[in-house]
Nucleic acid binder design. Structure first.
Lengths: 274, 274
DNA sequence: CGTTGGATGGAATAAAAATTCCAAAAAAAA
DNA sequence: TTTTTTTTGGAATTTTTATTCCATCCAACG
């Protein structure tokens, strides 16, 4: 006999209820069903126009798992769940541009701000796609993939990029040292023959980063610079200069382009090493 | 034998073609088929989510009339026509998990890799524009701007975002503590009444971040979560959940959308505090 | 007034989709 | 470890949906 308190058969009546219930049960689900929950949460907009088979294959689960999932949510089955979305369906925000305009319409709100940052990021990526120097990137990959250990330095606003790079390198088993300036230790003795240095710095260029680049150069170690202009002061010390144009919004700088470049670099180096 | 000039079997390839063709043939149609044309023209937005029977009954014609109508338009049948509308609704569908999977195997040139990451970033931003939850963002801004001190935690792949957030908050004179897990210190005693917590975590969710969120919640402090899905385990502990869709494969994750959201949040909080 | 040709409605059929069920696998408990 | 329970995948089944076909209807024309 079924325990009525155990699986209350109350299907969500609107999209908010749906999200609420989804968030509520998701953490308690076993593997396959959680895959369903995650895929559905990330693709709510496709439910109205997809079949069980399509969604299941997207979530990488068998159709029957998706059916179970719908039932756990309180629906009679997939069709029942889909009805909710078909009724609420309207071809929505037709495209990116309209939606952005919509976000911006109440100026000064957080949403308007978000729209500005999204646009700045997009513009940066576009401009990177146009101006990227393939030869310099290839050279950078070669230099770093031949190094014993890669030293990464990036401070202030570039610290986030340096951290992420260190993370990705580590995931790809590339030996890496992140110089974070903690304790004001003198980094010079960490540089060994065979190492390479990756400097990330944008205006106003941090003296510590420039200094590490100069030291490495003095020791004849290869230096790769990820910076904002080819005229950047770090370019003097570098064997490969990756210039990434980045659009500022107000005093704040989108990091989208810089991060894309950083990831391409890291992944290329990682796979070049084996 | 059929006269090939009489019924050219060229299905419209996009919505403009469709409307064009509809306007073109509508005046020449007999009664029932004209009813179809008129109903379809007035309800284009429901085609993607309706069945033949539904549309036919809406147009007050038998299903077979509607089938004939689809074929006159150049489609093989109703399903063929419907596909156009289902696909047009969200372009850029073939998803990135597979594309990046291929990428990893083929290990293309660094330039190709860069192009892929740029494209991934662009897709993430676009998707963020479409799905951003204004209400949750506003709530998050309110909670954080009323806090004495903002505690930020984000580890592993989210550490970069946490760093950048701490940097921006600091620039805007918002008191902030970045919990970096260094020294495995117990963070709990750092949380004071009046503080708020900002947790950044994506799958696989780091236990430390979840734990800080739970502790804050237990102390009745407001918790804002910047995460990948509303089904994220951190959502249970959060007063505001900012879900940011991000194109993601294995260790490689575009952070473009997450950073845009983070910056909007930080700047909005900074200005709300004066 | 009968013939002709397209238009129509509905029943029959085919295709696709949803849903259930059960044996096997995995995980948890003992 | 062995037993018990839960979870899973896939094949079988049912239901829904799309599509075709044909007898009938209607209007124009001879």
């Amino acid at each position: 006999m079924d325990d009525p308190t155990h699986s209350p058969p109350l299907p969500p009546g609107n999209l908010d209820d749906f999200n609420l219930r989804l968030a509520e049960i998701a953490p308690t689900l076993p593997r396959r069903l959680r895959q369903c929950a995650e895929y559905i949460a990330a693709n709510t907009d496709r439910i109205a126009v997809s079949t069980v088979a399509e969604l299941a294959s997207g979530a990488d689960v068998p159709p029957s798992a998706l059916m179970r999932f719908c039932q756990l949510l309180g629906f009679a089955g997939f069709s029942d769940m889909q009805r909710l979305f078909r009724e609420a369906y309207s071809p929505g925000w037709p495209d990116y541009a309209t939606r952005l305009a919509n976000l911006k319409c109440n100026a000064g709100s957080p949403a308007a701000l978000l729209a500005e940052f999204i646009e700045a990021g997009r513009a940066s990526l576009e401009s990177l796609a146009k101006t990227a120097d393939d030869a310099a990137l290839t050279r950078a990959v070669t230099l770093l993939s031949q190094a014993d250990t890669v030293h990464i330095i990036g401070l202030r606003r570039s610290f986030a990029v340096a951290c992420y790079l260190a993370y990705v390198f580590e995931k790809m088993s590339v030996p890496v040292i992140l110089h974070d300036g903690a304790g004001k230790l003198d980094h010079r003795f960490a540089l060994r023959p065979g190492d390479a240095v990756l400097v990330i710095t944008v205006a106003p260029y941090s003296p510590e980063a420039l200094c590490l680049a100069a030291d490495a150069r003095a020791l004849d170690l290869p230096v790769v610079a990820l910076t904002d202009h080819i005229t950047s002061p770090v370019a003097r010390h570098a064997n490969a200069v990756l210039a990434v144009p980045e659009v500022d919004f107000g005093a704040f700088r989108s990091l989208s382009a810089t991060l894309s470049m950083a990831m391409a670099l890291a992944v290329a180096v990682g796979s070049a090493r084996g």
